[in-house]
């Protein structure tokens, strides 16, 4: 048996015991999954997107299963900043692993305010700006589709975050993702997370009605992994050339340790496990263990695996 691999990584200004994080919107505020994961099994988690005010979200039906995937149109339902700070963050802060807070604003000023409040919290390790949600009318993806807007939101958050690392979660629903990543990097982001869900829809042929009340939603799950890999590879290449200190956190359809390894090989420094947690509440921990076994078998550390694609 190969000796254990060194799985620790330093990504986007945050030290992780291993490169597997739970993805925003798929892991609640962490506690929902505590019965199913050993403490410290994963490197950390990214919270459900937090907005200044609570949001009730979209009308149902909000989710629908598709071939090797699912669509969601939750609409960023969340408890709001005050409730998060009072009742979610204290428990999270006591857990091993990094706490990355995903935040969502409808304006640059809201992003800045959220960054200011959350940046002041000792229990928060990094902020992840959600400029990529396809399921809300205001803000969301609108910010993530123009390099100028990505840069503006990022700069505003970085200025208020009191030194806390800022990550930017990018949408794949653009012609070319590299300019968005470069704009985030230029504005001071320490990492970009990609990809968010792919804008998609499903129709019931019997009723001719959309299967989601929101008509369109975001596609996630193993169906999108090849798209995510391609985009991570492209963005990692672009960042390496212009902003070598800025990391990529890869996600999209990771269901196994080898899926996670592929993202690292493509150029990600860490990965996020999302929809897999829905299909198996132990998935994130299992994937971290499988990735460690893969690295041990390859006699490579997680940091060495990152960006090791052979072309």
């Amino acid at each position: 048996m190969s000796p254990a691999a060194n799985m620790a990584v330093f990504v986007g200004g945050v030290r992780l015991a291993n490169p597997v994080l739970a993805a925003s919107g798929t892991f609640g505020y962490g506690r929902e999954y505590s019965p199913y994961l050993e403490p410290g099994a994963i490197g950390g988690l990214v919270t459900k997107g937090v907005s200044l005010e609570p949001r009730v979200g979209n009308p149902p039906p909000r989710i629908v299963e598709t071939a090797c995937g699912m669509l969601n149109a939750i609409g960023l339902a969340n408890v709001g900043l005050e409730e998060f700070l009072a009742h979610k963050l204290p428990w999270l802060s006591e857990q091993p692993g990094a706490v990355v807070v995903n935040l969502y604003g409808e304006s640059v000023a809201e992003f800045a305010e959220l960054a200011r409040r959350l940046g002041a919290e000792p229990g928060v390790d990094a902020l992840e700006l959600n400029v990529s949600c396809p399921n809300v009318k205001e803000g969301g993806m609108a910010f993530g589709c123009h390099p100028g807007a990505v840069g503006e939101v990022t700069a505003a958050a970085v200025a208020e975050a009191q030194g806390k690392p800022v990550w930017v979660k990018l949408t794949p629903n653009v012609t070319d993702l590299a300019p968005m990543a470069l704009a985030a990097a230029q504005a001071g982001a320490q990492a970009v997370s990609l990809i968010n869900t792919l804008l998609a829809m499903a129709i019931d042929p019997k009723t001719r009605r959309p299967k989601l009340a929101n008509v369109v939603g975001g596609l996630s799950g193993p169906a999108i992994k090849p798209v995510g890999l391609r985009m991570v590879w492209q963005v990692a290449g672009a960042l390496k050339a212009e902003h070598p200190g800025v990391d990529v956190v890869g996600l999209g359809g990771i269901m196994s340790g080898t899926d996670a390894a592929e993202y690292l090989i493509a150029g990600a420094k860490a990965v996020q496990v999302g929809t897999a947690s829905f299909t198996d509440p132990t998935a994130a921990g299992r994937i971290a263990a499988e990735l460690a076994a893969y690295c041990a078998g390859q006699e490579v550390s997680a940091a060495e695996l990152a960006g090791s694609l052979r072309i």
């Binding site: 609640g28 199913y36 009730v56 149902p60 629908v64 969601n72 939750i74």
Partner: peptide, 23 residues
């Protein structure tokens, strides 16, 4: 019942409209 992905309160898919708004 409602379409449900996770069963543990995380995905927020299984929204049932509640009296007074919200789910």
């Amino acid at each position: 019942e409602a379409p449900m992905a996770c069963g543990v309160g995380a995905c927020l898919g299984c929204a049932i409209p509640s009296v007074g708004g919200g789910y």
